[in-house]
């Protein structure tokens, strides 16, 4: 109880909802919901009831089970894509900030270039090249995340580089890599966490959007975006098909945003201002 009350309302809501989704996703991927996810024409388009809490879809699949299975795709792809982007972008940002020079210039130009491509478009093109599917989706979203993290980290680290403790470290003959990872990284870790949460919320919207236009996760894997796309033409017959996946998507995005918000509030409370 004590530890729980330390969290803000936003964090508690966001954390709880994401945990539920993750557990649901794991349960679904372990196969516990296979019966609900299976196609069964005899039970199609049933309204929400005690047997099917969120009703069934046009192929007789249980919407709640599909949402759980979709959570695995949405969260899995969203988080993986962002982490992949961060894993490449953070070291790039760190090293270019600590090292400077031509490489730094090239990397930031490359970032500019990626930024110049509208993100959704980039994903569409990549999917066209690589063929649709979860891996492509992760890659397409990750590519756009690389410069996001590289730029964030580089910008923050450049301002840190002028600070006196970096001079002291250099006086101690620390290598560029040591300065980057030992001195710079811990100082931008909080911002990175915030950015990861924000990017994750963007990534799950991107994933659902790609699935919506048919370029994301492919059947038989469930995806909220595709559920919405499938449900669209049934909206007046079976409004629950639009309402539930849409709400799940919205709440997941909201959760990530709330967590990002709360972390950034903590971060700014606890740490002396970087520009102090």
């Amino acid at each position: 109880m004590n530890t729980l009350t330390r969290f803000s309302r936003g964090e508690r809501f966001g954390g709880l909802f994401l945990t539920i989704l993750m557990i649901a996703g794991i349960i679904a991927s372990l196969g516990f919901l296979d019966d609900g996810v299976a196609i069964d024409i005899s039970r199609r388009l049933l309204a929400p009831s005690s047997a099917h809490w969120m009703g069934t879809d046009a192929l007789g699949r249980d919407v709640l089970s599909l949402i759980c299975a979709g959570a695995a795709s949405s969260l899995g792809i969203g988080i993986l894509a962002v982490l992949l982007g961060a894993a490449v972008g953070i070291p790039l940002g760190l090293v270019t900030a600590a090292k400077g020079g031509l490489i730094s210039e090239a990397v930031s130009r490359g970032g500019d270039l990626v930024f110049a491509f509208p993100s959704l478009l980039l994903a569409v093109l990549l999917t066209a090249v690589l063929g649709p599917g979860a891996k492509t989706t992760i890659l397409a979203i990750a590519v756009f995340n690389v410069p996001v993290f590289a730029r964030l980290v580089r910008g923050q680290c450049l301002s840190l580089m002028s600070r006196d403790f970096i001079l002291s470290a250099r006086m101690s003959n620390r290598s560029t890599a040591a300065i980057a990872f030992d001195h710079l990284l811990p100082n931008v870790a909080g911002l990175i966490v915030i950015q990861i949460a924000l990017q994750a919320s963007l990534a799950i919207v991107a994933e659902s959007g790609l699935s919506y236009v048919g370029l994301g996760v492919q059947p038989p894997f469930a995806s909220w975006g595709r559920m919405l796309a499938d449900a669209q033409s049934l909206v007046s017959v079976a409004p629950w098909l639009v309402a539930f996946p849409g709400s799940a998507l919205m709440l997941a995005v909201l959760s990530f945003n709330l967590i990002a918000d709360a972390v950034s509030r903590r971060w700014s409370d606890r740490t002396p201002r970087l520009d102090a």
Binding site: S201, V205, S208, G209, Y212, L228, V242, G246, L249, M250, L251, V253, L254, N257
Partner: peptide, 8 residues
């Protein structure tokens, strides 16, 4: 509001 996907 910012959590609502625009296509929804």
């Amino acid at each position: 509001g910012l959590s609502i996907p625009n296509y929804w």
